[in-house]
Design a protein around this nucleic acid. Sequence first.
DNA 1: CCCGGCTGTTTAATCGATTAACTGGAGGTT
DNA 2: AACCTCCAGTTAATCGATTAAACAGCCGGG
Lengths: 344, 344
Amino acid sequence: MVRVRMADVAARAGVSTATVSMVLNGVNSTRISPQTQQRVREAAEAVGYKPNSVARSLRTQQTRMVGLISDTIATTPFAGRMLAGANDVAREQGHLVILVDTERDAVAERQALHALNGQRVDAIIYACMWHRVVEVPEGLPEDAVLLDCVAPAGGRAAVVPDERAGGMAAVRELVAAGHRRIAFLDAEERFDLVASRLRFEGYLEVLAEAGIEPDPALHVRAEPVASGGREAARRLLSLPVERRPTAMFCFNDRMAMGAYTAALHCGLSVPRDLSVVGYDDQQLVAAELDPPLTTVALPHYEMGRWAMEVALGLRQADPEVPHLMPCPIVRRASVSPPPAQFGD
Amino acid sequence: MVRVRMADVAARAGVSTATVSMVLNGVNSTRISPQTQQRVREAAEAVGYKPNSVARSLRTQQTRMVGLISDTIATTPFAGRMLAGANDVAREQGHLVILVDTERDAVAERQALHALNGQRVDAIIYACMWHRVVEVPEGLPEDAVLLDCVAPAGGRAAVVPDERAGGMAAVRELVAAGHRRIAFLDAEERFDLVASRLRFEGYLEVLAEAGIEPDPALHVRAEPVASGGREAARRLLSLPVERRPTAMFCFNDRMAMGAYTAALHCGLSVPRDLSVVGYDDQQLVAAELDPPLTTVALPHYEMGRWAMEVALGLRQADPEVPHLMPCPIVRRASVSPPPAQFGD
DNA sequence: CCCGGCTGTTTAATCGATTAACTGGAGGTT
DNA sequence: AACCTCCAGTTAATCGATTAAACAGCCGGG
């Protein structure tokens, strides 16, 4: 791999490097005669010239690289889509992304920030794998964009899923099918999930909208994994039939998976005897379940795109209010009208 | 954010930039008096000097960045662990990784290679999300490392999972529990998976080892997703009892998930009536199933580490033979001895 | 008293581009 | 003839580091 410099192109074309630079970058192109341009381009081709971005970056003071700091974004399944979204925009704009995974370690975050600063990246995105309120690391530039998290103090561009609207969409789906006894299988409070609170708000809002009195017994909490969902669902399904829910809105798809298991164990069939709606739209769970799960999708890809667009200045963001990205409902086959005796 | 240059440090310390450079890099440090060193360091601290890696890279001809090109690595759940492994090594070595997701698009790959070359990355890793034989893109440097794939022509450092040994481990687990009628729920051939062939080899090898005559009826193929596994398992479980398998080794965890469902539908309990072993160790599937699934883990993290270690020259690789990374078995609760009437 | 060697630091070249300022000559004007 | 305007480039400074080579003092030896 020989090093070909701009000077080599210039020598071969019999011009100065300034001319080569102008031609190849299309700057001031009116000032260079077409013949010369042609010669330069041929020379560049002939010697196999590839511009050195390091040198260019030094001179122009922009690197066309953006740093993406994340707590374990890469190691968690769904959040990869955020990366894909960010990456796509970056590519469209001729930028590269440097990914740093800090595993939530303050020291690693410090280091990452240092390294990215040293590389003089053009922008920084700070991403979380869950919707969270984060104490951003000291030294994070003012104009860094927060992805799937918000700063407690505000004042920073940020994008998060519209969990409240998502919760509403999920419950509306069930109400529309005719359900009135709708449980919410929530995550335990100790996980301190922003999403939990907001989805619950959405749940209550739609019940109110539909004139349904919320039954506290139907709001249960468990660890947000399959076994948690299973146990919670089991308890609900063992209620006397008139107090039993005909539908469950689950905090996430894994809990919904547990609800399926519980239903099966109770000899109930989904969706005939029990309708279920999940949240997250995790491919490996929602789509693979039997029957496929109706769920609310987390707009990771879109949030990734949004963050990168803001980072690159393609789009303006209001630093005072986090941008709420819609969570579309994904209809599959786990919702149907309630059994006849419960119908309205 | 003011720009502090080395010259500013030099001015404040009353020395030349050469001295500052030597002190801060610890080069020739015996030649600089302790007092001066002290003064330089204080000055650097006082003005908040942060070295500019772009300038350094230009001069030293190394960027301390490595490019990681992948087909959809980020968008697929398990492969994120490869990234984590690579990232960890990079960080330990003071390197940064530039991630490019090409979605298997040849044009995107070309572009990515161009961009990374332009950035003068110190090394390149080419990663796949599945174990595959790939036609590497033209222009991929000789010393690029292949991750989870091999080139048909060979001649390149590469690391892949040891699928054959993994298959052996899985089947040994079942044989050790006393099973003799062990099915292999394989992926369909049209998916053309290297893994499929190798795991099957491992399966046959262990049967031979145990003196079990392989029954062709127990080697079935289906789409490697839950529904495929469910149907395949259903067919096997509807065989007359003496020809029915007492255990299933599934090509992946999703198929195993399907096998669980089929067993449930047939009124069989896992592992009492049917033992199941999966492959991949996908957290969201294997660990969440009821009972938790015994499976073979794909060593993504370790492969990621290996690739980065080779890329950074920390470890030598034989370009003629791909490195085989062991796939450890993960024991959970889906294997038990066969029902009494089948015992040995 | 001059020379050589050592110490501690500086000078200046260099990495490979970008770009503001300049130039030499052709052509046009008055 | 003197002067101006374009044209088609070129010159040289610059980005911010690294590093080989040079250099200024000082000490000791002959």
